[in-house]
Each structure stands twice: as C-alpha cells, then as structure tokens.
C-alpha cells in the first residue's frame, strides 16, 4: 500500500533519514520505536509528504507522492494523520472539526442545492455517530479549548476516521497527554487495530507497541536497524543498539 524507496531527508548537513526502503501492506499495524532523534517521526511525516523528502520516493497505491505534478491533497484524503499536539482546529467546534474536510471534499462534487443539503445531513450524521462511539457526542457544539487532552486526541482520531482513510499515521499520539489520559487514547487505537485498519504508529509506549503491532521497526541514526514481530523485537533483540535501547525503556 505504501512503499518508501531510498527515502532520504537532510536538514542542511544533518542526515535525518538515510536511504530508507520499506513496504507497508494493507492491514499491517506498524509500530516504529527508537531513541529521540532517530528519525522515526520524520519518517512517518514523509509518508504523507508532510515533510518533503530530500531524495527518494513514496509510492501510495502505486502513485509517487513526491512527484510535484501529483495532487497531494487528493491522496492525503486517504491517509489520516494524528499528531502529538492533537492540532484540533481551535476556531471550529468539535463537530465542525470532524465535518470540515468531508464537507469540503463532498461539496466540490455535489450538484445543486438539494444534493448539498443531503450531503451536509449525511456528513453530520456520520460525525455524530463517530462522536457517540468515543462518548463525546454531547460536546459536539463545544470548542476544543474546553476539552481535556485525552478528549482532544480522541476527537482528532475520529476526525481522521471521518475521511474513511485507507491508512492512519499516528505521530506519538500519547506523548503530550497526562498519564491518566493515555489509556483512553490507546484503547481507541487498539479498537481500530482490531477492526483491521492499516496503521503506522510512532510511540514510546512499549507495552502498547507489543500489544498492537503486527510488525515493529526499530530506528536509529536515520536507518531501520532491526524489524520483526513484537516477540522478535522485545524478547529476542539482535542488534546491540536495540538491546541497549530496550534496557533503558523497559
């Protein structure tokens, strides 16, 4: 589904990603772990071209996203993204946060007033459904500033879901949360995983990684140093850097 080919990212003289080639197939739940500065967030952000790679290509369903002629907005509609800092739209209500993109995309295609009203009704019904799922429907008309961190992140996740993405990219989804709110967000991600959603997750939660991952990538120094099933990585690590990393975090 996503294929990175010789992906390299440099900031000036600093090489953050070093010739990474990796394929992510449909239904996989990839968890990327590694020390800070290892390039794992940058790798994730390159997958939907939030960062532009210095060289190399990203193929999403066979289309090269790094090609300037490709309409990146069209493809991003199928790749959800969840940020460390939630990034809910502060000037929009919770409901509007979820409906904004589906309405924007749909209204371009909708012909005539009746079709537009129909679309708005459908999109809002779907948004309420998603909010009910995370138990926040009564917050629909509130602004994000009134929500707790965990609530914000769960809204951010259903905002991504509202576009019916084929894959969701999670960039350290629990790192900015108070400890007591980590659980509610991880539970929601686990639910999505069980439903078969393809996902790529950068995280520092090792227990969660072991539980949810179908494959774990260990990154260090801009390279994927080791990868395998959670059992391989956590119970039987091979490379010394991974052993050292695990000994510090577990």
């Amino acid at each position: 589904m996503i294929e990175a080919v010789n992906l390299t990212k440099q900031y000036g003289a600093l090489t953050v990603l070093d010739q990474i080639s990796e394929t992510i197939s449909e239904g996989e739940r990839i968890v990327i772990i590694g020390p800070s500065g290892s390039g794992k967030s940058t790798f994730l952000r390159c997958l939907n071209c939030m960062e532009d790679p210095t060289s190399g290509s990203i193929f999403f369903e066979g289309v090269d996203l790094t090609d300037m002629k490709v309409d990146i907005n069209l493809h991003r509609q199928h790749m959800g993204m969840v940020f460390q800092q939630f990034n809910l739209f502060n000037n929009k209500t919770v409901l509007e946060n979820i409906t904004l993109a589906p309405l924007h995309v749909g209204l371009k295609k909708a012909k005539g007033r009746a079709a537009r009203i129909q679309l708005k009704r459908e999109v809002e019904a779907r948004a309420h459904e998603l909010l009910q799922r995370i138990g926040l429907d009564e917050w629909a008309d509130k602004y994000p500033s009134t929500l707790s961190g965990g609530q914000k992140q769960r809204v951010a996740i259903v905002r991504a879901l509202a576009m019916n993405p084929k894959v969701i990219l999670f960039d350290e989804p629990t790192s900015a949360l108070d400890p007591e709110m980590v659980g509610e967000v991880l539970d929601l991600i686990k639910q999505l995983a069980n439903e078969g959603m393809t996902m790529v997750i950068v995280t520092h939660e090792m227990g969660f990684a072991r539980e949810v991952a179908s494959r774990v990538l260990f990154m260090d120094g801009g390279k994927i140093m080791e990868q395998g099933t959670p059992e391989d990585i956590f119970d039987n690590p091979q490379c010394p850097r991974l052993k050292e990393f695990l000994s510090k975090v577990i």
């Binding site: 991003r76 509609q77 993204m81 990034n87 995309v105």
Partner: peptide
C-alpha cells in the same frame, strides 16, 4: 498561529489556500 493548525488542515487533504 501554531504551525500544527496548517499541518492538520493539510493532513486531512485541504489545500493551502482552503
């Protein structure tokens, strides 16, 4: 305005101007 607001908009597939 936090750069994350622009990133979140772009991530759901909205264009720069939108």
């Amino acid at each position: 305005v936090d750069i994350g607001q622009m990133e979140a908009g772009r991530a759901v597939g909205l264009g720069f101007w939108t």
